[in-house]
């Protein structure tokens, strides 16, 4: 028995140290999650307002022509901005984001990828996709500057007609325990479906004259990059919060599993020990019997 008991003990020890690591990681990501959520709450009004305002402006300006509008040109090449984590150990977070982007991708040849986060970059690089840009290690300390840089790159590619449409893949933060990978189209602009109530409101106001200063097309040249930047920024902030949330859950599960495993192994160990004792007694009794 000595051999078996020692083996089980060794396993308990190793599972226990794994548990300590996962527990520590869980605590770290809870702290980070809290910070990321605070950020998210602060930026949410901006994100929502920009989205709403631009949509309103778009809805009221149907007769303005611009390269940013749908139907102005044929779509040959698509660009995907994929936001993933820099590190793993966060459950299905990275795979879900990558899967969501693959769903909308058609031909590998006509795709260019701007990867944010190491995991996504590695994935697309290994499979030979065209990477037009890669940004790693920006998710822990997101600043608007990063979003601006990415936005500027996208706008440049779009203006040079290297790409004809732009998608943003990010993970939206629904609650601490639920996140959903989403793929939204940034360019060209399309009107987002309106709810019944909004439509009614719009119906009353649609004939209102709006002044666009300095001129509608100049305005759009200014607004659209702004819109793209802020959506990228919003996507980054939400994804960062989701990443921490996903990691916390993954680590919590890992810790729970380790505890369960330790319980099982301890039971096995005690059983083996008991068996050994019983056997020893039986041997002693047997020996004593034989001496009589």
């Amino acid at each position: 028995m000595a051999g078996k008991g020692r083996e089980i003990k060794r396993r308990i020890k190793s599972v226990n140290s794994t548990k300590q690591i996962t527990k520590a990681m869980e605590l770290v990501s809870s702290a980070k999650l809290r910070r990321a959520r605070e950020r998210l709450n602060k930026t949410k009004p901006y994100f929502d307002t920009v989205k709403k305002t631009i949509n309103e402006i778009l809805a009221d300006s149907e007769n303005i022509k611009s390269i940013y509008f749908e139907g102005e040109k044929e779509i040959k090449r698509s660009c995907f901005i994929v936001i993933t984590a820099d590190r793993g150990l966060c459950g299905g977070y990275n795979t879900n984001a990558i899967k969501a982007s693959l769903l909308s991708m058609r031909d590998k040849e006509d795709i260019s990828v701007i990867a944010i986060g190491q995991k996504g970059r590695d994935y697309f690089k290994r499979r030979g996709y065209n990477l037009d840009g890669e940004y790693t290690n920006i998710l822990e300390t997101i600043s608007f500057k990063d979003a601006k840089e990415i936005g500027a790159l996208v706008m440049q590619l779009y203006k040079q007609e290297m790409i004809d449409e732009v998608y943003l893949v990010y993970t939206s933060f629904l609650s601490t325990i639920s996140h959903k990978a989403e793929c939204i189209r940034l360019l060209p602009l399309t009107e987002i479906e309106e709810t019944g109530q909004e439509k009614q409101e719009k119906g009353d106001a649609v004939f209102e004259y709006i002044s666009y200063e300095p001129s509608p097309s100049a305005l759009f040249d200014y607004l659209v990059p702004q819109y793209v930047e802020s959506l990228i920024f919003g996507g980054l902030v939400e994804s960062a919060a989701s990443e921490q949330g996903a990691r916390r859950i993954a680590m919590e599960n890992a810790t729970d599993n380790a505890i369960e495993m330790i319980d099982k192994l301890t039971l096995n160990y005690n059983r083996a020990r008991q068996a050994a004792i019983t056997q020893e007694i039986a041997e002693i009794v047997g020996g004593a019997e034989a001496l009589k």
């Binding site: 709006i210 002044s211 200063e213 200014y222």
Partner: peptide, 16 residues
């Protein structure tokens, strides 16, 4: 971008 502008209530719809 065209200089200082003041907006008060009931201003016409504007985007700039």
């Amino acid at each position: 971008v065209q200089g200082d502008v003041a907006f008060m209530a009931d201003h016409m719809w504007t985007v700039t």
